[in-house]
Simulated assay, not measured.
Amino acid sequence: MRTIAIGAALSGALAFTALSVPAAQADTVVGDTTVSNIVVNGGKDVVIGTTNKVTFKVTFTASDPSGIEDGESYLYKGTWSDPTAFWSDDRDEDTTCATGTKATCTTTYTIIPEYDLHYDAHAGAWRAGAYAKANDGNSAKTTNLGGFSLKRYSKLTVNASPEPVAKGKTITVSGKLTRASWDDRKYHGYTNQPVKLQFRKAGTSTYSTVKTVHTNSYGNLKATVTASTDGYWRYYFPGTSTTAVAKSTSDFVDVK
């Protein structure tokens, strides 16, 4: 599967010169072929960091009385006529369609950040479309069948001190929230973000939120709490429209 990432400086017309013929046209239907029910990554966000490649599947339904010969899917940010980024299957063997008059077609995408993502602005809402060709030569292409969120990977750290601590004394819980930058392949502090400080009492399995604190201009976190019982402290970031959810590891504090 070949993926194509397009910077905002490129026009839609230039972008589409690299795509296969079905993608270069507007929505089309020839005969009684249909495409529908597109799902990206099982309905979950696609989350990508700075170096690790990420593989996910796109499925859609293709129907025709003669059966389906092949298909293709398209993922893009912005508008179809002028996308700021575009990924597509550009070889028939990359999308497989089951046999039958109503077939599930599956495309496997493998995204390598250094080749396929060049700008932080690519994070956020994306759209998805699909094309199918029937055994009798009919076809259908719909460019806006659904959507998904492409998000930057995030990390959280935690450190609770002192350890151990006397009951009734103050614990300081520090941490840092960072997120991947596709601009420079590094992680940077995510500033002014609400992060939940959570506690799990020793011997239990459920965390509860004690308070919400905000990251500073470097992404750092600091909260103070009163020690009352043994347990585990962690930070939890609920994510944003461009950045994924993050949980720190747990830090156990022994209360004497």
Rank of each mutant, 00 (worst) to 15 (best):
R2F: 14
R2G: 15
T3A: 11
T3S: 12
I4W: 07
A5G: 15
I6T: 07
G7D: 09
L10S: 09
S11K: 11
S11W: 05
S11G: 12
A13P: 00
S20W: 01
P22Y: 03
Q25G: 06
D27I: 04
D27P: 03
D27K: 00
T28P: 00
G31I: 01
D32T: 14
T33A: 15
V35M: 05
S36D: 13
V39L: 10
V39D: 11
V39A: 12
V46S: 09
I48F: 06
T50P: 01
T51K: 13
T55M: 04
V58E: 06
V58C: 02
V58P: 05
A62T: 09
D64G: 01
P65S: 12
S66L: 07
I68S: 00
E69L: 14
D70G: 11
E72F: 04
E72P: 00
S73I: 10
Y74P: 00
L75D: 05
T79H: 02
W80N: 08
D82F: 01
D82M: 00
P83W: 11
T84H: 04
F86M: 05
D90Y: 04
D92Q: 08
C97M: 07
A98D: 13
A98C: 06
T101H: 08
K102Q: 13
A103I: 07
C105G: 08
T106D: 07
T106V: 14
T107R: 04
T107F: 12
I112E: 11
H118V: 04
Y119G: 01
A125L: 15
R127F: 10
A130I: 09
Y131K: 00
A134F: 10
A134G: 13
N135L: 15
T142I: 12
T142Y: 08
L145E: 03
L145P: 02
G146D: 05
G147T: 12
F148K: 07
L150M: 15
L150T: 14
K151T: 10
R152Y: 05
S154L: 04
S154G: 06
S154V: 08
T157V: 07
T157Q: 04
V158C: 03
V158N: 06
V158F: 04
N159G: 05
A160W: 13
S161R: 11
P162V: 10
E163H: 09
G168I: 13
K169Y: 15
K169C: 03
I171A: 00
L177M: 08
L177P: 05
T178A: 10
T178R: 04
T178G: 01
A180N: 02
W182T: 05
D183S: 03
D183Y: 06
D183I: 02
D184K: 08
R185Y: 14
R185L: 10
K186T: 13
Y187N: 13
H188W: 15
Y190N: 10
N192L: 13
V195L: 09
L197S: 09
F199H: 08
R200V: 05
R200K: 15
S205C: 01
T206M: 02
Y207N: 06
Y207Q: 03
V210A: 08
H214A: 13
Y218A: 14
G219A: 09
G219Y: 04
A223R: 09
A223K: 10
T224Q: 14
V225M: 09
T226A: 05
T229A: 12
G231A: 07
Y232M: 04
Y235L: 02
Y236W: 14
P238Q: 14
T240D: 12
T240V: 02
T242Y: 07
A246V: 11
S248Y: 06
T249D: 10
D251Q: 02
D251Y: 02
F252N: 06
V253W: 03
